[in-house]
């Protein structure tokens, strides 16, 4: 029924989901038999309808739930015994993740002080953040007084500053303005923190290498972002939209006006009006 695309080659993933299933009451399966491998250093978007199990998948990666199947992150099996080791591998940021402290500066430093990182190193990391985001202007401000953009940024950075291998974000990028979002993606890239982004904004899928689409707890489609996004029929049948340029390209292709997908408006316009 659902067209399931696998990327051409089976590889050893840095995040490996094998026959992953989860049910909270033993009857209704929130996730069914997910098999997915994410290569090291490849970013991932997770999309899907509202009840498809996206947040549950993040909770499982975070080690919060007992699941059936196997989940490995950087070769470490996700279970309660490996809690400590997994903290350096993955950080998960939810919409309702709490702030522990009052001030921006304290929140950013909190996790680093917990592991007794030297003040020199802590300052170095904060300076690193400041280069991208000019965070100095809000370092001494109370978190409650910040705008939604700044507050969300601080929330994400308070986890990113730990420099885990992976950071999973549950649909929080929609609260950032585009400029901050791009800076964040660049920052994560520069620190080699691989992003797993659950998103309801299809345009953001273009920022990641791979995408996994869930529907009713099943892997409906997955693969390289651009290839998956070209599957207009499946995505529209699931109720999702396409990023604007891809939607436009595919429909103009049907009219015979262009012969491929253009992401860049300059190139598309040049080819439309030859």
């Amino acid at each position: 029924m659902y067209n399931k695309l696998l990327s051409g080659v089976i590889f050893v993933g840095a995040i490996k989901l094998k026959d992953l299933s989860y049910s909270y009451d033993g009857k209704n399966k929130v996730l069914s038999e997910i098999n997915f491998n994410l290569r090291k250093d490849k970013t991932l978007s997770i999309i899907g309808t509202s009840n498809s199990g996206k947040t549950t998948l993040l909770k499982i990666l975070n080690g919060e739930l007992e699941y059936q199947g196997e989940v490995y992150i950087n070769g470490i099996l996700v279970n309660s015994n490996n809690f400590g080791a997994l903290r350096r591998c993955i950080a998960v940021v939810y919409r309702d993740s709490s702030f522990i402290t009052d001030k921006v500066k304290d929140e950013l430093r909190y996790s680093l002080e917990n592991i007794n990182l030297s003040p020199k190193e802590i300052t170095k990391r904060i300076n690193g953040i400041n280069e991208y985001f000019n965070i100095n202007r809000i370092l001494n401000k109370a978190i409650d007084s910040l705008s939604i953009n700044d507050k969300t940024l601080v929330k994400i950075l308070s986890y990113a500053i730990m420099e885990p291998s992976y950071i999973a974000i549950d649909d929080l990028l929609i609260d950032l303005n585009t400029r901050t979002k791009i800076l964040l993606l660049n920052y994560l890239n520069s620190k080699k923190i691989t992003l797993i982004n659950v998103t309801s904004d299809m345009e953001d899928v273009l920022y990641t290498d791979y995408v996994l689409c869930l529907y009713n707890g099943i892997d409906a489609i997955d693969g390289k972002s651009l290839e998956v996004l070209k599957n207009e029929k499946i995505l529209k049948r699931l109720g999702l939209s396409l990023p604007f340029m891809i939607d436009l390209s595919i429909q103009l292709e049907l009219y015979g006006l262009i012969n491929r997908v253009y992401l860049n408006k300059e190139a598309m316009v040049k080819n439309l009006w030859k």
Partner: peptide, 27 residues
């Protein structure tokens, strides 16, 4: 953004907010 860019390039297309209408207009 797209419609404005097209207009800037000298092509006179009408302004729409629905992608289907935009496509017919481009055609």
């Amino acid at each position: 953004e797209f419609t404005k860019y097209v207009q800037e390039q000298g092509h006179n297309i009408l302004e729409y907010v629905d992608i289907k209408e935009l496509i017919k207009e481009i055609y």
